[in-house]
């Protein structure tokens, strides 16, 4: 960004947010707003045409992002953000589709959609804000709640095994997988920038504090304590084996960029295969 653009005293986020809807509904100390800022920073830096970027969200705290960003956006039903984004991408292959949603939405309710979009290698970017529970509905146990953590449906602690999101994504065929905490501001921005430039299915998991439910039920203090705690517990290990990335309750968090590989996307494969079978009769789609 040029210096001259910054001189007027206007919030630089205004071009990216629907300011009539701000202040947002997120709790004081919640980290989702930070991730949204990182996302807009990445959009600024990557110099994409904003008319060609679409944001899709599901239901949940993070699902509100679609309503706050001033881009083409859609707030879908619970868990169906990924299939909606798939349809959007296929109907208009010029779009850069970003799914901005929570862990409960993408991996709990919409887990199967996620797996199949990753298997097909759809060209979408998924920013998953992981706060370890279903925060908007009252702090129920989610697929990502670590063992022994307390939740409103597990008053004696959670005894289920939790999903390791990077492992799941890599196993299902994602081409870019990264995990950060929301305090890794510049690293999240850089990661989103890289993933926006990369064709293929990308997952960026961002661990954020949930103050009102997760922190309160587990007596972990306020947003600042939790933010600092996650940051201090995190160890950056780029290219770490995704099998080792389980999150234990209050344990070590391995963050970094784990997977970054090249693979033909769904549309590439379709065009290649159909051209091979049908020859010149086939008109390539989306090129």
């Amino acid at each position: 960004m040029k210096k001259e653009d910054r001189l007027e005293s206007k919030n630089p986020m205004e071009g990216f947010l629907r300011m009539d809807r701000i202040p947002h509904i997120w709790c004081p100390g919640c980290g989702i707003g930070t991730v949204v800022t990182s996302f807009t920073e990445a959009l600024k830096k990557s110099k994409l045409d904003l008319d060609k970027v679409a944001v899709v969200s599901g239901i949940g705290c993070t699902g509100r992002v679609a309503g706050y960003v001033k881009l083409d956006s859609f707030h879908t039903t619970h868990g169906r953000a990924v299939p909606f984004a798939t349809g959007l991408k296929l109907a208009n292959p010029d779009l850069k589709v970003v799914v901005f949603s929570g862990d409960g939405d993408i991996f709990g309710i919409g887990g199967n959609h996620f797996i199949h979009a990753a298997r097909r290698n759809m060209d979408i970017l998924i920013i998953c804000v992981n706060n370890f529970n279903y925060a908007m509905t009252g702090g129920q146990v989610a697929a990502t709640t670590p063992m022994e953590a307390n939740a409103s449906t597990a008053p004696y602690g959670n005894f289920e095994f939790a999903f390791s999101l990077p492992y799941l994504a890599e196993a299902a065929g994602a081409t870019y997988v990264a995990r950060w905490t929301s305090l890794h501001l510049r690293r999240v921005t850089k990661s989103i920038q890289e993933a926006l430039a990369k064709p293929g299915f990308s997952l960026i998991e961002v661990i954020t504090p949930c103050v009102t439910l997760y922190a309160r039920r587990n007596r972990l203090g306020d947003g600042l304590n939790l933010l600092k705690y996650y940051y201090d517990k995190s160890v950056i290990e780029h290219g770490a084996d995704t099998r080792t990335l389980d999150i234990s309750y209050q344990g070590k968090l391995v963050v970094g960029k784990f997977v970054d590989k090249e693979k033909p996307t769904f549309l590439d494969r379709m065009n290649e295969h159909m051209t091979k079978i049908l020859g010149d009769k086939y008109v390539k789609y989306g090129e």
């Binding site: 210096k3 910054r6 001189l7 919030n11 980290g31």
Partner: peptide, 18 residues
């Protein structure tokens, strides 16, 4: 600009002082 990036409320921003 760290305060600007970390603010979850989009309530703080920095400009260059002449």
């Amino acid at each position: 600009q760290l305060c600007e990036t970390i603010c979850p409320e989009f309530a703080i921003f920095v400009t260059i002082k002449e």
